[in-house]
Computed example of a mutant assay.
Amino acid sequence: MTTYSPAEAAAQSGFSIDTLRYYEREGILPRIERSAGGRRVYSDGDLWMLGFLRCLRDTGMSIEQLRRYGELSRDDTTMPERVALLEEHAASIRARITELDATLVRVEEKVDWYRGELRRTGDGAS
């Protein structure tokens, strides 16, 4: 089995070592195995979980929701609850995408207005 040091896990996940410790302390991550010397040792499964947590965090999932997901993921009987949590988060992401699309339209309209003004006044670069 391949194992990774905290520094390697941090580099591969994009989280800082402090965040890895925080996620473990808060129950977002399961307890990480320790070497004979007491150092944390991350597995491929831990890195997969960190990658998924990175995805969830990057999409705006709150620490509270991450904690809940972490708790649920340690019990095989909680799949329906995990599905519900992820469906709720997916709905939140879709709503944010809709908001961002509307905002993008407004920004693009303003860019078009400025370009029109630049053409009108002759100040625009061709």
Rank of each mutant, 00 (worst) to 15 (best):
M1F: 08
T2K: 15
Y4Q: 05
Y4W: 07
Y4V: 06
Y4I: 06
P6S: 12
P6L: 05
A9G: 08
A10K: 03
A11F: 02
A11K: 14
F15V: 09
S16T: 15
S16P: 11
I17F: 01
T19S: 14
L20N: 02
Y22K: 07
Y22Q: 08
Y23Q: 06
R25V: 03
R25H: 10
E26L: 12
I28H: 02
R31I: 10
I32R: 04
I32T: 13
I32G: 03
R34M: 13
R34K: 15
R34Q: 15
S35Q: 05
A36D: 13
G37K: 11
R39E: 12
R40K: 14
R40A: 09
R40F: 09
Y42Q: 06
D44V: 10
W48F: 08
M49Y: 03
M49C: 04
L50Y: 03
L50H: 06
G51W: 04
G51A: 08
F52C: 12
L53C: 04
L53M: 05
L53Q: 02
L53D: 00
R54T: 03
C55A: 06
R57T: 13
R57I: 01
T59S: 14
T59A: 09
G60D: 11
G60Y: 06
M61Q: 01
M61C: 06
M61G: 00
S62K: 07
S62C: 09
S62V: 07
I63C: 12
Q65E: 15
Q65D: 15
L66E: 02
R67N: 02
Y69V: 03
G70K: 04
E71I: 09
E71D: 14
D76C: 03
T77H: 11
T78Y: 01
M79V: 12
E81M: 09
R82S: 08
V83H: 05
A84G: 04
L85N: 01
E87C: 05
E88V: 00
E88R: 05
H89E: 04
H89A: 06
H89K: 06
A90K: 15
S92F: 07
S92L: 06
I93Y: 02
I93F: 04
R94H: 13
A95P: 03
A95C: 09
L100M: 14
L100F: 06
D101A: 07
D101W: 00
T103Q: 13
V105K: 11
V107R: 04
V107E: 00
V107N: 03
K110D: 04
V111P: 01
Y114G: 07
Y114A: 08
R115P: 01
E117P: 00
E117I: 11
E117H: 07
E117F: 11
L118F: 14
L118Y: 10
L118W: 12
R120F: 13
T121R: 10
